[in-house]
Computed example of a mutant assay.
Amino acid sequence: MSQEVAQTTKIAIFRNRKIRKTIHKNEWWFVIVDVVAALTDSIQPDGYIKDMRRRDPELSKGWGQIAIPLSVQTSGGMQKLNCANTEGIFRIIQSIPSPKAEPFKRWLARIGYERVQEIEDPELAQKRARALYKLKGYPEDWIERRMRSIAIREELTDEWQKHGVELAKEYEILTAEISRATFGMTPSEHKKIKGLKRENLRDHMSDLELLFSQLGEAATTEITKTEHPHGFERNKRVSRRGGKIAGDARSNLEKETGRKVITSQNYLPKKQSEKLLKK
């Protein structure tokens, strides 16, 4: 996949502070404002960065090489945020007087080492994902289905990339087309039903929701492999057709059982889930 599309936003934790990171050129790139906020406890990290660059002319001079805008998942959807790799973050840290600097450097080194391991042995990423889901309390059979859904999704995005889909926004739209045809709603609408905000929708799907999501994407993959549509618009039409296959199956099941597949069920901690659903 292209670097623009291959980016996957993850959350790393440093001393209870969330730091978003994304893959670019086979290494982790970290959202700079998150790093600055974690090191300084500043409530206005953007302002701190401006002041920091004024204080350090050399840093400001090389800022264009250090900070690269990358697509990162935010509460408002995918947005371009300034990110830096490990080397760039080390340079930024030099301009931040903070007792957290040395522990943060060690933390960064560990994160980077894990990424190198995953490149050399892709199964490690899956093992870590499984372990994380277990720690969160997900049942083993659900974890198995979730890992399968990740594999199906990766195969689909690989096919999209081969067939001329290039931008992250295009991937987002194609995904929404499959979802609309499968469930009668977009992922953002689906998240509202579940009371989710920044959380990954698929991490909160029921078994049936995961199943039909997989079917829609697997069907789209197979049609794409057969017909070789090129470009965004043609892949958009194929996405609707693939999603419709899953949507028809969902409708048939709902008619037979008298129950909706879409559910407000999620895997949020109980109190948080109840609070969000009441809003």
Rank of each mutant, 00 (worst) to 15 (best):
N252M: 15
N235R: 01
S264H: 14
E256N: 15
V261M: 03
G243K: 02
Q265T: 13
N252Y: 10
G243H: 04
I245F: 07
K255E: 00
S251E: 09
S251R: 15
S264A: 14
A249P: 02
A249I: 00
H230L: 14
G243D: 08
N235M: 12
H228E: 11
L253V: 01
N266G: 04
G242P: 02
R237D: 15
N252S: 14
I262A: 13
Q265K: 14
E254D: 05
N252T: 10
E233W: 06
I245Y: 10
A246W: 01
D248V: 12
S264V: 09
G258Y: 04
R237T: 13
R237W: 14
T257K: 04
S251K: 15
N235F: 10
N235Q: 07
R259I: 05
R250A: 14
N252Q: 15
P229L: 02
R234D: 04
E256L: 15
G231P: 09
I262F: 09
K255H: 10
R259D: 08
K236L: 11
K244G: 05
R241T: 00
G242W: 03
E233F: 07
A246R: 05
V238I: 08
T257I: 14
N235A: 06
D248A: 09
V261R: 00
K244P: 05
L253D: 00
V261Y: 02
E254M: 13
S251T: 11
S239K: 13
S264I: 11
I245H: 02
K255I: 07
Q265M: 12
G231S: 11
F232Y: 07
R240T: 13
N252W: 15
P229Q: 03
G242C: 01
Q265W: 10
R250P: 14
N266L: 10
A246P: 03
K255F: 06
R259W: 13
E233Y: 06
S239N: 10
R259C: 06
K255P: 04
R237N: 12
D248P: 06
H228M: 10
F232Q: 04
E233V: 13
G243E: 12
Q265A: 12
S264N: 14
R234H: 01
R240S: 10
R240Q: 15
E256P: 14
K255M: 09
E254A: 05
S239V: 03
S264C: 12
S239G: 06
T257E: 04
S264L: 13
I262N: 12
N266Y: 08
I245R: 04
K260P: 10
K236G: 04
D248R: 10
G243W: 05
V238R: 00
G258T: 06
H228S: 11
E254W: 10
T263S: 15
R240P: 07
R259Y: 13
T257D: 01
S239E: 02
I262Y: 09
G242R: 01
R234E: 09
R237S: 14
I245Q: 05
V261Q: 00
R259S: 04
R240F: 15
N266H: 06
Q265N: 13
K244F: 03
A246K: 04
A249M: 01
K236E: 11
S264F: 12
R259P: 03
E233K: 03
H230G: 12
G247H: 06
N252F: 09
P229H: 03
A249W: 00
A249G: 01
K244Q: 06
K236N: 08
K236D: 06
G243A: 03
G247W: 03
K236W: 00
N266T: 00
R259E: 05
R234G: 03
